[in-house]
């Protein structure tokens, strides 16, 4: 491996070529048995019959998926019509996650751009400042958000104190509170990939555009944005995917009217009233949607890599 030194750390060293099976065994075993295995088990459970005290009876059934998509009336003997309850909950989750993603993009893009144009030695400090809150317990962050936003909370006190408003603004238990909570939960996932893309961007292109009398906003829209698009797409996916299945933000900030997939799934496994196969089926549908989005983005990314040469 004399070439290793010449080509630096990028060369793929193979010192442990013969031992890699043993080295990989623990991770394969733990993740295979306790993550991949359970997901397969969940798929099986979604096709089983529900037991009334929680749990399942080992008998094949399509009831869980049928309940999700079709309404067969109170006694189950009417001709099936589309059941909108759960589709609406999924649709709301997609919508809320989309709004949170947009909010993260609108705030996160300028932030990432600003950080990437700082002097090189202070950039890591900025990135660090943005990521610190992410490492604080999500539950604590969400509770803190609720404390700040509630009707008698510090935000409303402050706004009333300054005379901007007369009576408190109701934010908690609205759609907006959930979007704000999701934004707060996942913002670094937007900032980091966009930052990485802007950092690689060649600013001579902006200079060239300016020389050719493009306005600054035209340059941003027509030159910078297309160049950093892969980073933006990655950021949007990294915010959208966890937002869709989130539980804490809708549960604590949204209240009963703003029910999302996470709460729907959680209810199926709580106490005796739940329906395990239905919960498993809802989880499978969520997982399928996420995998489709991830596959789509992987293909886009591959295309972008190819085009970029």
């Amino acid at each position: 491996m004399a070439a290793g030194a010449a080509s630096g750390g990028s060369a793929r060293a193979d010192t442990y070529k013969d031992a890699r099976g043993w080295l990989l065994l623990p991770s394969w075993a733990v993740l295979g048995i306790f993550v991949l295995g359970p997901v397969c088990m969940m798929l099986i459970y979604s096709f089983l019959t529900k037991e009334f005290r929680g749990g399942v009876i080992w008998e094949f059934s399509l009831a869980a998926y049928d309940q999700f998509f079709f309404d067969r009336g109170l006694f189950g003997d009417e001709p099936p019509t589309i059941e909108w309850t759960y589709i609406t909950i999924f649709w709301r989750s997609i919508w809320q996650a989309g709004a949170a993603t947009l909010l993260s993009l609108v705030i996160g893009f300028p932030t990432a751009y600003f950080i990437a144009t700082r002097p090189e030695n202070v950039r890591p400090v900025w990135v660090f400042l943005i990521t610190i809150p992410y490492w604080v317990n999500l539950l604590i962050r969400t509770v803190s958000m609720k404390f700040l936003l509630r009707d008698q909370g510090p935000l409303n006190d402050f706004l009333i104190g300054t005379g901007l408003i007369d009576s408190p603004i109701h934010i908690v238990n609205t759609n907006f509170a959930v979007q704000l909570g999701l934004f707060y939960s996942y913002l670094p996932f937007m900032v980091l990939p966009v930052y990485a893309a802007v950092e690689r961007y060649n600013f001579s292109l902006s200079e060239a555009a300016a020389d050719l009398y493009a306005s600054k906003w035209t340059t941003l829209r027509r030159i910078v944005l297309p160049a950093v698009k892969p980073g933006v797409v990655a950021g949007c996916i990294l915010v959208f995917v966890p937002s869709m299945g989130s539980f804490l933000a809708p549960d604590l900030l949204g209240g009963a009217k703003n029910f999302m997939i996470g709460s729907l799934i959680e209810e199926q496994f709580k106490g005796n009233a739940g329906n395990w196969p239905f919960g498993a089926a809802a989880s499978m549908i969520l997982l399928t949607m996420v995998l489709i989005i991830l596959m789509f983005s992987a293909r886009q990314q591959a295309k972008a890599d190819k085009a970029g040469g």
Partner: peptide, 15 residues
């Protein structure tokens, strides 16, 4: 990192 956390949670419980 790819599977939504709530899905991992359900799957692990079922397992």
């Amino acid at each position: 990192l790819m599977v939504p956390e709530i899905v991992t949670a359900v799957a692990t419980l079922i397992f």
